[in-house]
Amino acid sequence: MANENKLWKVCKYLLLLVALFVVFFPIYSVLIGAFKTQVEYYQSGLRLPHNWFDFSNFRKVFKVGKLGLGFKNISIILVASIAGNVVLGTMVAYALGRFDFKLKKPIIGMYLVAQIIPMITTQVATFSVIKFIGAYNHMSAPILLYLGADVLQIVIYLQFVNNIPRDLDESAMIEGASLFRIYRSIIFPLLAPATATLIILKTISIYNDFYTPYLYMPSPKLRVVSTAIYSFVGPNAAQLNVISAGILVIFIPTVIIFLVLQRYIFAGVTSGAVK
């Protein structure tokens, strides 16, 4: 019995190592590729690069691929849409969590049903809305599309709002605070942990989004990171080493966010799933 357990333990670690290999092998190959010259890339195979301090591939992908512009544009979009999204999301949660009114159920239902409409298939029609309001080929298009609260956000916020004791509201009312004041000084600050989780998840998903900027902002001046690397690869498909450098640079921001803020991310994906 003890032997069998030991064997099982070894097996577990072996399987984990296999999984780690599968996860890290592709990442390893772009990591080494990013520091190789073109000739070296084609000749040295999987070996480590000669010179780990050769950043010429990185310089090239920033210059030709306009990654700098991509990072600048996506930052603007991120800040604007997430700030608006947090304000709107907390407001919805306060209104739905603290008051009873006739339209409450229909509004919650509206968010639930909207969830099952696959966004990607309705783009034909969303496209005409965006064109109609004049946001096409303008940064306001993705910002508007990211701004709305989604059902996951509402669910997480509502859980938090329900856990904030109503006594707090009531004592504030006795002291004469307005309802807006209660939202601003009690509810909004106490939602901070949920807000942190949601900001991180939203940041990752907006940063990763390809389709929205690709469809609504075709102008080269409005490239974000996703569309910049996409259009760099097309005409430069032969320069695998330079492309590797670009991939590596693009990976870095979310990897840092993940390493530092893991706890919030795990909390977010689990609470979203278990509902």
């Binding site: 990442i27 772009v30 390809f210 996703s226 670009g246 991939i247 990976f251 993940f258």
Partner: peptide
């Protein structure tokens, strides 16, 4: 954490990485 890592990586960059 290590097995979760791919989920946070940039989706377009992942596809291009696999192209390589």
């Amino acid at each position: 954490a290590m097995l979760f890592l791919p989920y946070v990586l940039h989706s377009v960059a992942i596809v291009i990485m696999f192209k390589n």
